[in-house]
C-alpha cells in the first residue's frame, strides 16, 4: 500500500481543527501553549459551540492567543482575566466563557481576581498554564518557580527565605467552595495530552451545570526560559516540576479527590527533590 493509497478523506484520523485560525503561533518551538490552544479549539469544535463562546486572553506569552482562535476574544489587563470572565458570564449567562492565563498573570499579579472569581463560584472555565517562569519578559522568577531554580531574577537559585516559597495556587483554589472541578494536567506525552483534553472537555461541559468554577492547570515547559531544548525541558519538568506539582484531579463534581486530601496533609514537610535543585 503506497502513501497515496492511504492519504484519502475516508482514512483521515487527525486534522487541524478549523476553530484554530491559519496564523502561525508566535510561541517558541515545543511550547506547551500551542498544544493547549489546540486542545481547547478541538473541544470547542467537538461541542459545537464555536458561535457561542468568548475567550479571555491574559498578559504574558499568550497575550496574542486571540489571533489563533476563530472565536470572539477579549484581551484582559495583566492578571484581570478572571474579573473579565466573571463579568461576561454574568452579563451573557448562555455563552460559554473561558479565561486563559499563565502563572505570572494568574498566581502573581492576578492572585486577588482568581481567588475571588473562584470564591464566588463563577460559572466559567479557567485554563492555567504553569511553567514556573515569566516567559515573555525574558525568564524572570514567578510565584511558581521551584525552590533552587535559576531564573534571571533568581540567578543563584530561588531562595525561599528571601524570595518566598513555590506557590501551589491550584491547591489553594481547590479549597474554595466556589470551585467545582479542579485538576492538574500536562501535555508533553500523547497519553497526557489525550487525558488533558478530556479534562478541558469536562471543564467546558460543566458550564451547563451552573455549579461553579472549573479550573484546569496545565503544568508546562518553557524551554527558552529554562535554557533547554524542548525535549530536555519536558524531561526536566517530569523529573522536577511534577514532584512538587503532581498531576491529577483535586476536586471533581465539587468533591475532593481522596489522594488530594492525603497530599495536602504532607504540605508542611520539606520537599527533598526541590531542595536538591539548589546550588551549593
Amino acid at each position: 500500500m503506497t502513501r497515496e493509497d492511504i492519504i484519502k478523506p475516508e482514512n483521515l484520523v487527525y486534522k487541524r481543527t478549523p476553530v484554530l485560525t491559519d496564523a502561525t503561533m508566535h510561541y517558541c518551538p515545543g511550547c506547551g501553549h500551542g498544544v493547549v490552544h489546540r486542545i481547547i479549539a478541538e473541544v470547542i469544535e467537538e461541542m459545537g459551540i464555536q458561535d457561542n463562546v468568548i475567550g479571555i486572553s491574559p498578559v504574558g506569552c499568550s497575550v496574542l492567543a486571540y489571533n489563533y482562535f476563530d472565536i470572539d476574544f477579549v484581551e484582559a489587563a495583566h492578571g484581570r482575566a478572571p474579573a473579565c470572565a466573571s463579568a461576561i458570564k454574568r452579563l451573557r449567562p448562555d455563552t460559554f466563557v473561558f479565561s486563559y492565563q499563565g502563572d505570572g498573570d494568574l498566581a502573581s499579579i492576578g492572585c486577588g481576581e482568581v481567588m475571588h472569581a473562584c470564591n464566588r463560584g463563577e460559572n466559567i472555565t479557567m485554563i492555567f498554564i504553569n511553567n514556573g517562569i515569566y516567559g515573555m519578559t525574558g525568564g524572570q522568577m514567578a510565584p511558581t518557580t521551584l525552590e533552587g531554580m535559576e531564573t534571571v531574577t533568581s540567578p543563584y537559585g530561588r531562595d525561599p527565605k528571601i524570595m518566598g516559597h513555590t506557590m501551589r495556587i491550584t491547591e489553594a483554589l481547590a479549597q474554595l467552595p466556589g470551585t467545582y472541578y479542579v485538576t492538574r494536567q500536562a501535555v508533553y506525552t500523547p497519553a497526557l495530552a489525550r487525558k488533558c483534553k478530556k479534562a478541558i472537555r469536562m471543564a467546558f461541559e460543566n458550564q451547563k451545570l451552573n455549579k461553579g468554577v472549573s479550573f484546569v492547570e496545565v503544568t508546562s515547559n518553557c524551554n527558552s526560559g529554562w535554557k533547554m531544548t524542548p525535549v530536555q525541558a519536558n524531561k526536566w519538568m517530569e523529573e522536577n516540576t511534577l514532584k512538587y506539582f503532581p498531576l491529577g484531579d483535586m476536586k471533581v463534581d465539587g468533591k475532593f479527590d481522596p489522594k488530594f486530601i492525603e497530599r495536602v496533609a504532607t504540605f508542611d514537610q520539606p520537599n527533598e527533590t526541590i531542595f536538591s535543585l539548589r546550588k551549593k
Binding site: 493509497d5 483521515l12 484520523v13 487527525y14 487541524r16 506547551g32 498544544v35 489546540r38 489525550r194
Partner: peptide
C-alpha cells in the same frame, strides 16, 4: 496512531490510517 499530532504544539501534522 496520531500520537505525534496530539502533542504537536503547532498543529502541523495531519494523520491518515488505512
Amino acid at each position: 496512531c496520531a500520537s505525534c499530532a496530539v502533542i504537536c504544539p503547532d498543529g502541523v501534522i495531519e494523520v491518515y490510517r488505512a
